[in-house]
Design a binder for these strands. Structure first.
Lengths: 356, 356
DNA sequence: CTGTTAGCGCTTTCAA
DNA sequence: TTGAAAGCGCTAACAG
């Protein structure tokens, strides 16, 4: 295997010398103005469409802009206008498949508006969230979208005094701030109801962190569906986990060790359902023949799961989109908030009617 | 089900009225200086540690900063210093589980350096990539990391004339630009070799897009391993797909329809392997009993796949980290480029020794 | 050590 | 219509 003489390659080590960078005449609006024989204000006016400009000068300017491939400095513009045209987005993990969809929604809504998203991560960790919010503040974003997280209501309200805030996953009333929610409880309810309709009466629940509002709402939906069907809610059947795959694994083991029997499992999110799936496989328990499994979120992957996962679809892409639209409205002072689309039960192949 | 009277909820509609926003006195460096009884320069010096300042004034200033909760305006600072302290990152899909890891690496490397990443998406689409690069340019980022994509070498080189560029997934030599690579060919080679060692001789390959350099390199590794083992490379056993799950489904169907027999499949990435897995399941072909399956990337999910997927681990988090470190070095003009860690074969449960 | 004075690149009155 | 001038919030010589 002689072709591979190293496990990696780096090109152009000499490129590290970038001493030449210093030369270059920066192309600025002023330069354009001079070259086109007009004043800077005129160029600015053309760029912003702020006022009528004679056809003659306009074409002259446009030509020079073209020629120099001039792009106005958004930073400088921001300073002058007191607006940076960027929207801060506090997500939890930049690589999260779940929040990723929301980010895509935000990108989508912001495309073509002149505003750009600035993504920062909080890692489900108050300190990081505060630091990240500080970064956004320092960069004077015009608005902020907070995708859940651990910031206190007070912090959020205070933050909203300086900058418009849109927050998901919590109910909060304050000036300059709007909360956007999907109906987690309804989701938990629908999922449980589906299982009950399939004849299951012993339904285990793998919950997320107790301090996570979404998680608790879903649990409430589960409990309510149980209650409405006159089924007891056995606390032994509720395992507490952490929204991660590994938590799902642990939860299943714990549930099985408890020796309570159950014929179905509802996981508070898809990631835990993935972990649960693996744990069941290890225990030689078949899905859905022996146990039905339901997730929550409908991650892109859940169609390709083995078997494809029955789950609650959250309109998370749309939520991101609406959040972005809402924050823009807050900034410009327009009204009419949007409603978020409802959660939806996606019946796939991980659940089946119980054999009697 | 009376508790849910709507499938969504929006709070605080009245918050849309943000007319009060106009009041507020902005807290600036100048304000701090005045309140502390010193000149703006002194405050600036304290903030930047640019020069020694008497203990007396320092504490006075620090107190006022504290009192006003002052955060210097990074935008203004950027204008003055000719540096924005942000690094543009062109990714393809913000929600991609694969690039997500790289983004995390970038965040990780940038944390605490004062630089912030500005993530933009290219969607594997030249037009979007150009637009996104334009956005970065307009915002005067101090450096750019390009995670593969379709920009031409010329475009990249030209871009590097204005801003330091780090590019992954291609070999390019130019001033002010460095290319970072993982050894895709070696990955393809290792994966194939593993299959051959397990006794497989008829190994199908699901490729990515032909215009994708990573994809082609992996294919070459596959071919080389075959050649070294004196196995013929049957073109009928190579299905062309698109790096997405659905492509994996299609590829398997095509492969099976071709009526060539094979006992193993190597997919050029994990996502296609997921799709292949589903397609095989639909066809009642067991993995790994009937067919062994290997992926490429080692996405976080591949441990939780059914069965857990044998795959080539790409050090993509580390790659992101190194890319960020490299671009910082390019900016500050320091030297010593890093090497990227090698790819690694992760043997899990989707492959097994062929029964004879 | 510290204040004064010019800008950074753009927008925006205010006159002309 | 258009230009001159002032200013956005900060930094960086340059004196003192």
């Amino acid at each position: 295997m002689i072709l591979f003489d190293g496990a990696f390659k780096i090109c152009n080590i000499s490129a590290m010398d970038n001493s030449h960078t210093s030369a270059e005449i920066p192309v600025t609006l002023e330069l354009i103005a001079r070259e086109a024989g007009v004043s800077p204000s005129t160029v600015s006016r053309i760029l912003n469409g702020t006022a009528r400009v004679s056809e003659l000068k306009r074409t002259a300017v446009e030509k020079t802009i073209e020629r120099y491939n001039f792009q106005p400095n958004v930073i400088a513009r921001g300073l002058a206008k007191g607006r940076t045209f960027s929207i801060g987005v506090l997500t939890q993990f930049i690589e999260s498949p779940f929040y990723g969809e929301a980010l895509r929604g935000i990108e989508d809504a912001l495309a073509g508006t002149g505003f750009a998203p600035l993504f920062v991560s909080g890692h489900w960790n108050l300190k990081d969230e505060v630091r990240s919010m500080g970064l956004l503040q320092a960069r004077r974003v015009d608005g902020v979208i907070v995708l859940t997280g651990k910031l206190s209501d007070e912090q959020l309200v205070q933050y909203a005094q300086r900058t418009p805030v849109v927050i998901t996953g919590r109910n909060l009333q304050a000036p300059n701030l709007v909360s956007l929610n999907v109906d987690d409880r309804l989701g938990g309810y629908k999922a449980t109801q589906h299982l009950i309709e399939f004849g299951h009466t012993r339904i285990a629940y793998i919950s997320g962190p107790v301090d996570h509002p979404d998680s608790m709402e879903r649990l409430r939906g589960y409990q309510q569906a149980l209650a409405e069907a006159n089924l007891a809610c056995d606390p032994e059947l509720i395992a507490q986990a952490d929204f991660h795959e590994s938590g799902g694994v642990l939860a299943i083991n714990q549930l099985v060790n408890s020796r309570r029997d159950f014929t179905a499992v509802l996981a508070a999110n898809d990631q835990m359902a993935y972990g649960a799936r693996l744990a069941l496989y290890r225990l030689n328990i078949r899905v859905p023949e022996d146990i039905s499994l339901v997730g929550f979120d409908d991650l892109p992957n859940s169609i390709y799961t083995m078997p494809p996962l029955t789950t609650i679809r959250q309109p998370i892409f749309e939520l991101g989109k609406i959040a972005a639209q809402t924050v823009l409205k807050l900034i410009t002072g327009e009204g009419t908030p949007q409603s978020t689309p409802p959660v939806e039960l996606m019946i796939r192949e991980s659940t089946r009617r119980i054999r009697r």
